[in-house]
Design a protein around this nucleic acid. Structure first.
Length: 453
RNA sequence: GGCCCCGUGGUCUAACUGGCUAGGACGCCGGCCCUUCAAGCCGGAUAUUGCGGGUUCGAGUCCCGUCGGGGCCA
């Protein structure tokens, strides 16, 4: 078992953890856990505008919600900047990099002369306004040994002598990350496909630095149903939204894991332990995937139903921002089978915690002609019941069906509307029991009164 | 424009070094159950594995070409 593996995850600090980013984090985390390594989190600070402490904290929040653990990057922002400067000077001294004052036009002109597929090669200069470029060999190729794609070769002659630092000394992305990886001892880089063609540049920097090369795994990107990169327009696009909509972290982890990877034996529902045990980064597919919220909902429903009641109540209470009292617990007990998300549970148990809702449509549809005698009979029967357990309630109401010669729905739906205000609720007997005899009678009475003569 | 990646039913995927009547899941349709809505159970439709060649007794799996989608850089 190799120890001290460091997987890095570097979300951009916009405050939003996108689903694609969350999957990347998950794969990093699973791979790290599976190999005895650890996940190192480093926030990308390239976008100063949006890189506020609040935004960074929001990313951490989302990651914590997913129940990941990680180490913060071993180097502070300031330390990183120091290393960048030092390494840059090093490359300049050794001649691996050089100053060049060429403009974009100059590069274009170079290509016009040498061919479009010829990488730009500059001439060293001492001018003050010169940027720093890295020397790229003319011969051979730089190959990325990718765990998912296999070897991917990039011809060196087509690669520009790319800019690694601006004239003012500020470093560019491909140089900065390569230095960071080297300085932080990153052993495994698991990130999106969009970085695949950046990788040869980072390798070139690493080579010039004489640093160790990490293992790379480039994940396929996530797309929306329209085939374009997943974004806000496609509904839930961030982990924060998923959380707000009442999804369970374990279900989200399960679903995300399946978005680009599958088990050989066709298992769909996996606990996190199983995920850690079975996930292998090498088995991740190469094609981009489409986020399908319907499947997430299904998986979430399965996890919801399998949750122990105590934990279920806790999760629900947290989501609703309420105390987990007896009423709530009673509601959870009778509605756990029915909700796919925490969010969906509320309309089902609301009647226990608040007065019945006013739903004119439901009322009109169910409380038609001849309903009043049915409700009166139900009220009387419930009032006279021996006890008020589910069996007692059923024993009280069931005989009415034959006596009044009505189908079950004709009797039960009006009761349902009377006590909840809506046509959808948990089982009618359980609902009455959870509400209690007194309150049930009061609500049925109120409904009768509302119907008038 | 250059370089690179990808292409299995609507969606996510499985198929060790070529042998499978292309498997599973979500969704969809139908049925059962039934006090509503779900869930559950049963059954069904949907894939000439982007397309065209080639190698082979045999290709989703190998080779060539082509189309389409995407990424990075410019």
């Amino acid at each position: 078992m190799s120890q001290d593996l460091r997987f890095r995850f570097a979300p951009s600090p916009t405050g939003v953890l996108h689903i694609g980013g969350a999957r990347t984090a998950l794969y990093n985390w699973l791979a790290a856990r599976g190999s005895g390594g650890k996940l190192v989190l480093r926030i990308e600070d390239t976008d100063r505008e949006r890189s506020t402490p609040e935004n960074v904290e929001q990313i951490f929040d989302a990651l914590r919600w997913l129940e990941f653990d990680w180490d913060e990057g071993p180097l502070s922002q300031a330390e990183r900047a120091d290393r960048h400067a030092a390494r840059l000077a090093e490359l300049l001294d050794s001649g691996a990099a050089y100053r060049d004052s060429a403009t974009a036009e100059d590069v274009k002109a170079y290509k016009a002369e040498h061919g479009a597929d010829a990488g730009y090669r500059g001439t060293p200069s001492d001018e003050p306004g010169a940027a720093v470029r890295l020397h790229v060999p003319d011969e051979g190729e730089t190959v990325v040994e990718d765990l998912i794609h296999g070897p991917v070769a990039f011809p060196n002659r087509s690669q520009d002598d790319f800019v690694i630092a601006r004239a003012d000394g500020s470093v560019l992305y491909n140089f900065a990350v390569a230095v960071d990886d080297a300085e932080m001892g990153i052993t495994d880089v698991v990130r999106g496909d969009d970085h695949l063609s950046n990788t040869p540049k980072q390798l070139l920097v690493l080579h010039a630095l004489g640093a160790e090369i990490p293992r790379y795994a480039h994940l396929p990107l996530l797309h929306g149903p329209d085939g374009r990169k997943l974004s806000k327009r496609h509904g839930a696009a961030s982990v924060q939204e998923l959380r707000d909509q009442g999804y369970l972290p374990a279900a989200v982890r399960n679903y995300l894991a399946l978005l680009g990877w599958g088990t050989t034996d066709d298992t769909t529902l996996l606990s996190t332990e199983e995920l850690v045990e079975r996930f292998r980064i090498e088995d991740v597919g190469r094609a981009s995937a489409v986020f399908d919220e319907q499947k997430l909902r299904w998986i979430n429903g399965r996890f919801m139903r399998e949750l122990p009641l105590d934990e279920y109540v806790e999760r629900v209470a947290a989501h609703l921002g309420r105390e987990p009292d007896e009423r709530l617990r009673a509601g959870c007990e009778i509605a756990q089978e029915k909700a796919q998300t925490l969010y969906e549970l509320w309309p089902l148990i609301r009647f226990l915690l608040e007065p019945p809702v006013d739903d004119p449509k439901a009322w009109r549809r169910v409380m038609g002609e001849g309903t009043r005698p049915l409700l009166e009979a139900a009220r009387d029967a419930l009032a006279a019941a021996d006890g008020f357990g589910a069996a007692d309630v059923e024993a009280a109401l069931e005989p009415l069906l034959a006596r009044l010669d009505v189908k079950p729905g004709r009797l039960y739906q009006p009761i349902r509307v009377a006590i909840t205000g809506t046509t959808v609720s948990p089982g009618i007997f359980e609902s009455l029991v959870a509400l209690g005899r007194e309150e049930s009678l009061a609500r049925i009475g109120a409904a009768i009164a509302r119907m008038g003569a």
